[in-house]
Nucleic acid binder design. Sequence first.
DNA 1: TTAGGGTTAG
Length: 733
Amino acid sequence: MEALSVPSISLQNFSTLNNNLLFRNHQILSTIDKCSSSKQLKEVHARMLRTGLFFDPFSASKLFTASALSSFSTLDYARNLFDQIPQPNLYTWNTLIRAYASSSDPFQSFVIFLDLLDKCEDLPNKFTFPFVIKAASELKASRVGTAVHGMAIKLSFGMDLYILNSLVRFYGACGDLSMAERLFKGISCKDVVSWNSMISAFAQGNCPEDALELFLKMERENVMPNSVTMVGVLSACAKKLDLEFGRWVCSYIERKGIKVDLTLCNAMLDMYTKCGSVDDAQKLFDEMPERDVFSWTIMLDGYAKMGDYDAARLVFNAMPVKEIAAWNVLISAYEQNGKPKEALAIFNELQLSKIAKPDEVTLVSTLSACAQLGAIDLGGWIHVYIKREGIVLNCHLISSLVDMYAKCGSLEKALEVFYSVEERDVYVWSAMIAGLGMHGRGKAAIDLFFEMQEAKVKPNSVTFTNVLCACSHAGLVDEGRVFFHEMEPVYGVVPEMKHYACMVDILGRAGFLEEAMELINEMSTTPSASVWGALLGACSLHMNVELGELASDQLLKLEPRNHGAIVLLSNIYAKTGRWEKVSELRKLMRDTELKKEPGCSSIEANGNVHEFLVGDNTHPLSSNIYSKLEEIATKLKSVGYEPNKSHLLQLIEEDDLKEQALSLHSEKLAIAFGLVTLAPSQPIRVVKNLRICGDCHAFAKLVSRVYDRDILLRDRYRFHHFRDGHCSCMDYW
DNA sequence: TTAGGGTTAG
């Protein structure tokens, strides 16, 4: 009996104790929800460890959830906490996967998911899958996501609405719109999220028409859209550049009383700027009760894209928080509008200000600006920076580096980067093919094209443009014909205008002018200015007056202000001695106030880019440059150099004036500057905005021999590598 | 005993 009394007492005691514990537990647990800083959370954690409450899986999961999902706690701390939980339950595992899925490192969700399968006694449930699928969408990890989809079906969650909705988004994000649509159509009880997922999938997958159509269908089926729907619809309007429909959507939102939150406001701003009405955007922006970094960046982007850099700068200066995206907007706007120097100035400002840290987008845009300017020192510095900061070299960065090195004249470095990586997508291969092509290595470019086939990478339209360009620069006519004729039947790439222009260039340059004309006549679409330009260039090279007149007529019909066409035609007339025609064209240029684009050459020295215009004497070292030019002239004359005056296109009449004008061509100034400032071991790298003229070409060849210097000159079309009196273009350009 | 899916800038 005694034995009975003891347990009865202890049971009673235990029960009291348990009640107290429950009460205390409840108190501690309820404080978790009230935490508003990581410090408070850590205090609760400590108390739970002291009381042993942390070792109760449910209580631990409460604490963990707060740390994983709260805005004030870091994911690292949460992960640490998770690792301390002796036996995390499925709920806890799911929460960790969820937290990683919306973090900056969604890949961890996969790692944790595999860990769950290995270590958790429960199988994944219907809550697990949406989180894992979300991670797959973020990463566009189509194979992993598809496998996860299969697993969900096996565990008989194939019809769960939440999982299906996540899958629609996942397949959409991976670009498999037909699979997304198949799943969407198969959902028996679609809710508003199902519609939203499909509309966004269309909008983001470059099918804005389908997105808008689906929205109208949703209307017809009386499904009430919410603000998320409208964000997707506005994004489709922005993609379609459909301002009218966009405006209708904005009034629809008002009419239907759809709640306009900050995100929706931003989507409206974005639609207005993308559709070209920055005024509407500015009006809305001014009225917005609340703005976030997105709102500011959209406005900045709007002004920058339309080329209103002053307004963009005002927005930028007013931004309360200058995230890296804002810097990127400015840098890429300058870089893409042919203002690479301004782009580099912003990059410099970013470096000095240390407000934000360059990311991959910054580096891609900056590398492109370096490529445009031929700024190899800065480009190389960025390469070192990437390595130093441990930035992962993705395909985008690799193609930018390859492109930068190739365009700055260092084919070796471009090849080094290309062969140093294992993952190469079609753009990386295409960039390398272009690099070889512009350096006149046509055969190597073609070999690389076939190497790409062996690596099972499918060529696209860019690849073919680059391959054809490579053939053109190297005079590989037969190879060019084969590629052009095989691109559609063998590789499934339909020839576009630029491919026709390349092919006309290949044929024309090699003197097959009639064949080039036949090709133009066979075209099913109207030939563009670039096609006629290629023919005209070839006519100028081979002095074909008849076809030249035809080509320039067509070209001027399409682009009446194309001074290049007039210059080329006058070139043909001058070479064939039709002076009266030359005068007519000169008069036409005067009357229409058409000015020849001034020649401009740039050269990098000690990290600074120096620019020279024709006859420029504004450079601080101008007097040194001109004495150097005189010295060069004397030296070259002694080896038999005669200036070739025909390249002046008879725009200057007096012979001595001509000679003087020739010596003032910008590339000559840049080369002289290079000889003055660069160490004898350094190659002289010059970038010219126009095509190099025959006289400057002969000049550079001789300078390379007389001064024993490598000269790398990039003109509008290609590279000329001068060494020991020869050029890599073999005088075919 | 806890919960999930869809949205905007480069």
